[in-house]
Design a protein around this nucleic acid. Structure first.
Lengths: 216, 216
DNA sequence: GTCTATAGACTGATAGAC
DNA sequence: GTCTATCAGTCTATAGAC
């Protein structure tokens, strides 16, 4: 998956415009992005955007598809691996996300914003509508784990929400937290690195049988 | 704090425009909001927006100030209360947030989006720049708790991130999760209600001395 | 106070020169 | 392929009738 922000020096004009468009779209969102911003970012003339891609919307569509499909697929490979435990899968998914989000910190806010403005359209665009979490091998492992406990662990939906929250939200809230604490981007990334090991620990706490005592 | 979406029937034109503007701004963000949208939402003519508020930007400024200041103050009252424990404060803050976010599910994404586009400006606008978390009574209680432990609990910054993540992120991700699971808005709100008691339990797990064993 | 009409700037997209 | 010039539509804001 190519989600880094490097400029490939020998790429074609078409690719350079795509790279520039990807950066601007993700930073500002579809609505707030002007085709002139993309032209400036690419270093080429405004009219070339329409020459290569016909319209702003088609350019957006192409870029987003390319950007997400390989990432979604890499997660699907992890959750369907028959040789790893639930705990190992969780660690791998967390690593996968933290790698990707460290490279693309603007991505979660962008995705949530676009999904908010038209859920069905955007999820179909990135191919997330075809993902069926319940049909994964991870889901099967979870069901087996739940069956072998006296007390049920936390509801899957809450567990999923919590794991996603702990991974993704700190990236979204980065600007707020850095603004309040005064820590710089590098120090903040170090905090995110610490979380690679901390999040698996925190989520494992939620799966403990001691959960039983809570149902009051 | 008036953050509900009720239309007050006997309010003036000025107030009706403010109410309409608040709804539209929060739903779509500043950049994507057109003054025509506000005019339509209010039922009045486009030109009255400028008659009463001079410009889109000044109207935005007024509304956002009013919307947040009372909420921030209500949280400050909780964190500076000398008669409640850390645990009680956490529960009260969680209740405060879940109440507010259930009424205004679009708010977190709106805030994060605006902060992302200009952190200093927006945080000053809502008065959050003057908030000093380290000077609160809660911070003092935390320091005392940490001093009485052999092993330090989780770093305050991670604890803060995690608590905020578990509260706020599920509201942001609501559209995605509802889209994937097919559950409706009311069922989703029920899940959020469950979290009132679950989040304090989960965050308490992170404060346990068993945390000691993690530092490998 | 509330409306219609329109100015002036900006947007996405295209025609045509080279 | 890449550029300049410009169109047609939309945006915020204002002037002026009532």
């Amino acid at each position: 998956m190519d989600t880094n922000n490097d400029i490939t020096p020998n790429s074609s004009t078409e690719d350079k415009i795509k790279e520039a468009a990807r950066r601007v779209f993700i930073r500002k969102g579809y609505a707030a992005t002007r085709t002139r911003d993309i032209a400036d970012e690419s270093g080429f003339n405004l009219s070339l955007i329409n020459y290569y891609f016909r319209s702003k919307e088609k350019l957006f569509d192409i870029i987003i598809k390319e950007h997400f499909q390989s990432f979604i697929q890499s997660v699907m490979v992890i959750v369907n691996n028959r040789d790893t435990s639930i705990q190992q899968k969780i660690q791998l998914i967390i690593n996968n996300y933290i790698d990707m989000l460290t490279k693309n910190p603007d991505l979660p806010l962008f995705v949530l914003k676009e999904i908010n403005s038209d859920p069905d359209k955007f999820m179909a665009m990135i191919g997330f509508d075809k993902v069926n979490g319940g049909g994964t091998y991870l889901a099967q492992q979870w069901a087996e784990m739940a069956a072998h406990r006296k007390a049920p662990p936390v509801k899957p939906i809450h567990f999923l929400m919590n794991t996603a929250s702990l991974i993704i939200f700190p990236f979204i809230a980065g600007p707020v937290i850095r603004n309040k604490t005064g820590i710089d981007k590098e120090q903040y990334n170090n905090l995110m690195e610490e979380r690679r090991k901390l999040i698996p620990y925190w989520v494992s706490l939620m799966l403990n049988d001691s959960y039983e005592g809570l149902n009051n």
